[in-house]
């Protein structure tokens, strides 16, 4: 305590620098958040799925009327030959339009993509697919949206990667983008294939 008078000047400098340093750190953090927001790597509303690593929930859904594609049930996702992508979409959902080309590309590359039309009128969903193309090998309709809740879905679009054992490996809430595909989905597909 006897040196109390000695550190005075440095202490004053600390008092000046500490708030500046705190402000600089906050600024750097904020900048990182903004950058993450624009690149899509940071999503403040993103919520991890509770179902990762768990088997797909039991469900049976009817086919989408008029689509002439087979319906979808949990059995279709268990013990398949290869991992599949399950995509929940709706014709009334704008981001679904944005991500659609990605789904078309995946389908073209031979990735099985199964679709679930969420809370959509069959005619509207059909119109959407007629306009933007059909990437789905199977297509079901969840008009009441109850099966979607079993999947932990909280909005459309949402995509789930199911491995060959029927375990949910990955969930993407929001539109699939070029980056999502190259950075996340395609490497995972390679690993789970």
């Amino acid at each position: 305590m006897s040196e109390a008078s000695v550190p005075r000047p440095s202490r004053r400098r600390l008092l000046l620098l500490a708030p500046l340093a705190a402000a600089a750190a906050a600024g750097a953090g904020f900048y990182a958040m903004l950058r993450g927001l624009s690149t899509g790597s940071y999503d403040p509303k993103g919520v991890p799925s509770a179902l990762i690593g768990k088997p797909v929930p039991d469900f049976t859904l009817p086919p989408l009327e008029g689509a002439d594609l087979p319906a979808l049930s949990a059995a279709d996702l268990r013990g398949g030959e290869r991992p599949v992508l399950v995509n929940f979409f709706a014709s009334w959902c704008v981001p679904c339009v944005i991500e659609h080309p990605m789904l078309m590309r995946l389908a073209k590359q031979g990735v099985p993509v199964f679709g679930v039309a969420y809370k959509d009128k069959p005619a509207d969903a059909l119109g959407f697919l007629r306009k933007h193309g059909t990437p789905y090998a199977k297509l079901a309709a969840d008009q009441p949206g109850r099966v979607a809740i079993d999947w932990g879905l909280y909005g459309v679009p949402e995509s789930y990667l199911i491995d060959r054992q029927g375990i949910i490996r990955w969930r993407w809430a929001g539109p699939l983008t070029e980056d999502t595909l190259t950075q996340e989905l395609l490497p995972l597909l390679k690993r789970t294939a």
Binding site: V47, P48, S49, A50, L51, W151, G152
Partner: peptide, 8 residues
């Protein structure tokens, strides 16, 4: 609901 949506 916790089973489906997690802690959040």
């Amino acid at each position: 609901l916790h089973d489906r949506y997690g802690d959040f």
